[in-house]
Amino acid sequence: MIKKLFYVYLLFPAVALAGLRQLLPIPQTVTPNGQQYPLSASTLLTDIATVQLVPDLPQIPLNKDEAYILEVTRDKVRITAITALGVYRAHQSLQQLVVQKGKKRYIEGCTITDYPAFRVRGFMQDAGRSYLSIEELKTEIALLAQYKINVFHWHLTENEGWRLQSLRYPQLNAAENYERMPAQYYTLAEAKELVEFCRQRHVMLIPEIDMPGHSRAFEKAFGTSMQTEAGISILKNLLDEVCETF
């Protein structure tokens, strides 16, 4: 997990402003006010304004729902955004502005105007080849959301194993039909739980079901390929189950 998340960090160069280097991805504009405000254990006073148009925002065709202005001053934090999604994105930047040095905690004073350069910012986890627990996936997604990644591509089936439970065809999840990490798969309840976990963090979960390639697990379970008449019939039922789940 550490190596894969490290690649995400490399997508964004460091911000060339002392004290604001933690901001990833780099906001569209950052104007420091040169101040550092000590933080106590109390919560920051945040003033949130939801507007129809973010002032001083360029006319951009996409991503306006993610746009925000974040102002950090001595008295309070002010967030201006068009939608709740924009407010959420602003909060992720706000968390990155908090600096911990020994026992001292402070926040950098600044004004940030931001919106995404790209509508889709994705991360793919290949659980088909190597199973990860649902809790590990949640840890990944929570961290990715902090850096405004908005798509989680969940690769669920591979030659090595069919990692999504099937109530219609339980033989898919039988240990003998796996080539790696046998019988380790996600229940349908876990899949629904992860969808909701992503939704709460404004991340779209996209499941990947491989067909007709990368399907030895399917062939071992049914004794036929996906491209036969029998295989196609099974796939239709499987995809109904997948769609009901996601």
Score class of each variant (00 low, 15 high):
194 L>G: 06
17 L>H: 00
111 T>K: 05
110 C>I: 08
156 L>C: 10
207 P>R: 09
164 L>M: 15
134 I>A: 15
59 Q>W: 06
212 P>S: 08
119 R>V: 08
57 L>K: 03
15 V>F: 00
17 L>Q: 02
186 Y>R: 10
171 Q>E: 15
180 R>G: 04
227 Q>Y: 00
34 G>F: 08
15 V>Y: 00
173 N>T: 11
214 H>Q: 02
23 L>V: 03
41 A>Y: 04
122 G>C: 12
40 S>V: 02
142 A>R: 03
181 M>E: 15
141 I>M: 07
196 E>I: 09
174 A>F: 11
240 D>I: 11
194 L>D: 05
54 V>F: 05
103 K>W: 01
166 S>P: 08
183 A>W: 06
95 Q>S: 01
17 L>D: 07
153 H>Q: 15
239 L>V: 14
195 V>R: 14
223 G>N: 01
37 Y>N: 02
143 L>Q: 03
149 I>K: 04
202 H>N: 04
102 G>V: 01
1 M>L: 15
11 L>K: 15
160 E>M: 10
157 T>S: 15
17 L>P: 02
227 Q>F: 05
82 I>L: 13
137 L>A: 10
229 E>H: 13
155 H>Q: 10
152 F>V: 13
127 A>P: 02
153 H>Y: 13
54 V>K: 00
72 V>M: 06
83 T>H: 14
229 E>K: 07
16 A>H: 05
196 E>P: 02
120 V>C: 02
51 V>A: 07
208 E>H: 02
233 S>T: 13
49 A>L: 09
14 A>P: 00
220 K>L: 12
83 T>W: 06
224 T>L: 07
226 M>N: 11
75 D>S: 09
86 G>T: 09
185 Y>D: 15
115 Y>T: 07
34 G>S: 01
69 I>F: 04
147 Y>H: 14
57 L>A: 03
134 I>E: 07
14 A>E: 12
235 L>N: 11
82 I>E: 15
36 Q>D: 07
12 F>A: 13
193 E>C: 01
147 Y>P: 00
95 Q>G: 05
215 S>N: 14
201 R>K: 10
79 I>P: 07
125 Q>R: 13
8 V>L: 08
141 I>L: 11
106 Y>D: 02
71 E>L: 00
106 Y>R: 03
182 P>K: 05
152 F>D: 05
16 A>M: 09
128 G>R: 13
39 L>H: 04
228 T>F: 08
242 V>A: 05
12 F>Y: 10
157 T>G: 11
182 P>R: 13
224 T>W: 04
129 R>F: 07
1 M>K: 10
36 Q>I: 00
18 A>S: 07
171 Q>R: 12
211 M>H: 01
126 D>H: 09
79 I>S: 02
215 S>R: 14
30 V>E: 09
18 A>T: 08
